[in-house]
Structures are given as structure tokens and as C-alpha cells.
Design a protein around this nucleic acid. Structure first.
Length: 124
DNA sequence: AGCGTGACAAGGT
DNA sequence: GACCTTGCCACGC
């Protein structure tokens, strides 16, 4: 049995599938999308796939940001403004140059997770 | 085959 | 925070 190697096409599909599953009003990072697609350390591949993806696919690409919350596009560029607009339409607002990932990040039960962390309990 | 490039990430200064 | 360096992966020339 040979080593399992996914074709670029299969990788694209895996990535696109994950992108489609990001809920409205949520954001996530390129690296996280890659990881969820079973392609750890392939953040740049995600950007590449999104860039090449046809607009007709109508992917929610605007929900994907850099790991630090900044948009991947140059501030003020046409794409930057479009992404900002589409995010705003979903209630995701930029704080300065970045999105508040702690608040809008793609995660379940944020409150429960945060308040269950030992670090928070210790400081109370 | 080597090298530059990019819708990236993490760590350091 | 703004940069810079390294590591990373796929492509194109």
C-alpha cells in the first residue's frame, strides 16, 4: 500500500468544504482552515485556493483572517474594503486594523470555555 | 534544479 | 505596536 497523497484537487475540495462550514458572523484563520481540512501547516495553500476559486462558488472567504486578526489584504485596498463590508454585514466589526478574534472567532461555547480556564479562576 | 513569490504563522527585537 | 527572520508549502519561470 502506497502512502496516502491527496491530489491538489482533493486538497482544494477539502479546503473549500471547510470554508463553507464557517458560520455567518464568525471568523477563523488560514491556518485553522488548513488544519480542519486535514492539511496542517498549509495556511498558504488556503490563501492560494481562495484566490483561484471562482466567485461563482460564492464562498464565505471574508470570514478568513490572518492568525492575529488582521485581514490578509492591504489596508484600504479594494479587496480589504470589500471584506470589511461583508464582515460588517454579519456583525463583525474591525477594531482598528483587526477583528476581535476572542469575540468573533469560530469556536463553540465561548463563555463556558473562557470562564472554565484556570487562569481566570486564579485571578478572581 | 534553483530561486523568487505569496490572501500564512510564530517567535524575537 | 511595528518590523524582521525563519519555517512552511505549492507554483511558475
Amino acid at each position: 500500500m502506497s502512502i496516502m497523497q491527496s491530489s491538489t484537487e482533493q486538497r482544494q475540495q477539502a479546503i473549500i468544504s471547510v470554508v463553507r462550514s464557517i458560520p455567518s458572523g464568525c471568523v477563523t484563520s488560514y491556518g485553522e482552515v488548513a488544519a480542519r481540512a486535514g492539511l496542517p501547516r498549509c495556511a498558504r495553500l488556503v490563501g492560494r485556493v481562495l484566490r483561484e476559486a471562482s466567485d461563482s462558488l460564492k464562498l464565505p472567504w471574508h470570514r478568513i483572517l490572518r492568525a492575529d486578526g488582521r485581514l490578509a489584504f492591504a489596508v484600504g485596498s479594494r479587496e480589504f474594503l470589500l471584506q470589511k463590508r461583508r464582515l460588517a454585514k454579519e456583525g463583525v466589526v474591525l477594531m482598528g486594523a483587526r477583528v476581535d478574534v476572542a469575540r468573533h472567532g469560530w469556536h463553540r461555547d465561548l463563555d463556558a470555555e473562557l470562564w472554565a480556564l484556570p487562569v481566570h479562576r486564579a485571578r478572581l
